Amino acid sequence: EAHAAIDTFTKYLDIDEDFATVLVEEGFSTLEELAYVPMKELLEIEGLDEPTVEALRERAKNALATIAQ
């Protein structure tokens, strides 16, 4: 499951495998979680700032909209 989540994140969020791995290690496994989890939870991840989190959430929401079509 972790590998599938990493693949999904790299494909749809335009991030590298290392960043995707950090997200999975922090407990995220779906685009929905990244799109809708409280921003505070993402900001608790070391190295993430508000602009990065906002961009990540926007990419996740856009990916979900694209997949739904």
Score class of each variant (00 low, 15 high):
52 T>M: 14
10 T>N: 04
30 T>D: 04
20 A>V: 03
48 L>N: 02
3 H>Y: 07
57 R>N: 05
45 I>D: 01
37 V>N: 12
16 D>P: 10
30 T>E: 04
51 P>D: 13
65 A>T: 09
47 G>Y: 06
30 T>L: 06
13 L>T: 01
47 G>P: 03
5 A>D: 04
20 A>M: 02
8 T>Q: 10
39 M>W: 04
52 T>F: 14
9 F>N: 01
22 V>N: 08
65 A>Q: 10
59 R>F: 03
68 A>C: 08
2 A>Q: 15
62 N>H: 13
2 A>G: 12
68 A>W: 02
58 E>V: 08
8 T>M: 15
32 E>I: 08
38 P>W: 02
32 E>G: 07
15 I>H: 00
45 I>N: 03
13 L>P: 00
68 A>G: 11
23 L>V: 02
29 S>E: 08
35 A>M: 11
2 A>I: 13
48 L>V: 10
3 H>R: 15
4 A>N: 12
32 E>W: 10
24 V>L: 10
65 A>G: 09
36 Y>H: 14
32 E>N: 07
22 V>L: 15
15 I>Q: 01
19 F>C: 08
25 E>F: 08
48 L>R: 02
37 V>S: 12
7 D>A: 08
1 E>P: 12
23 L>A: 00
28 F>A: 01
60 A>S: 05
6 I>S: 03
47 G>C: 07
15 I>F: 03
48 L>E: 01
42 L>C: 04
28 F>E: 00
51 P>T: 11
69 Q>D: 12
32 E>L: 10
38 P>A: 06
19 F>I: 09
54 E>N: 10
69 Q>R: 13
24 V>E: 03
37 V>C: 10
26 E>F: 15
44 E>A: 15
14 D>G: 13
1 E>W: 02
18 D>T: 12
69 Q>P: 08
8 T>P: 03
15 I>V: 10
28 F>V: 05
13 L>A: 00
21 T>M: 14
55 A>P: 02
43 L>W: 05
29 S>V: 11
66 T>D: 11
23 L>T: 00
66 T>W: 04
17 E>G: 07
38 P>K: 05
7 D>S: 06
9 F>P: 01
17 E>H: 12
29 S>W: 13
52 T>Y: 09
7 D>F: 04
22 V>Q: 13
44 E>W: 10
35 A>F: 08
22 V>M: 15
40 K>L: 12
23 L>Q: 00
68 A>E: 11
59 R>K: 15
36 Y>N: 15
32 E>C: 09
65 A>E: 13
43 L>P: 04
57 R>Y: 02
55 A>H: 09
69 Q>S: 12
24 V>Y: 14
51 P>N: 11
9 F>C: 04
37 V>E: 08
4 A>K: 15
15 I>G: 01
45 I>H: 04
28 F>P: 01
34 L>A: 00
45 I>Q: 03
29 S>H: 14
56 L>C: 02
53 V>P: 02
22 V>G: 04
26 E>I: 14
16 D>C: 06
23 L>R: 00
20 A>Q: 01
7 D>E: 15
49 D>C: 05
10 T>K: 09
62 N>F: 04
31 L>Y: 00
38 P>D: 15
6 I>G: 03
2 A>D: 11
42 L>N: 03
13 L>Y: 00
66 T>G: 10
24 V>D: 01
63 A>F: 03
11 K>Q: 11
45 I>T: 03
2 A>L: 13
57 R>I: 14
46 E>Y: 10
62 N>L: 09
53 V>H: 02
28 F>I: 09
63 A>Y: 03
15 I>D: 01
2 A>V: 11
15 I>E: 01
24 V>C: 05
55 A>Y: 05
1 E>Y: 02
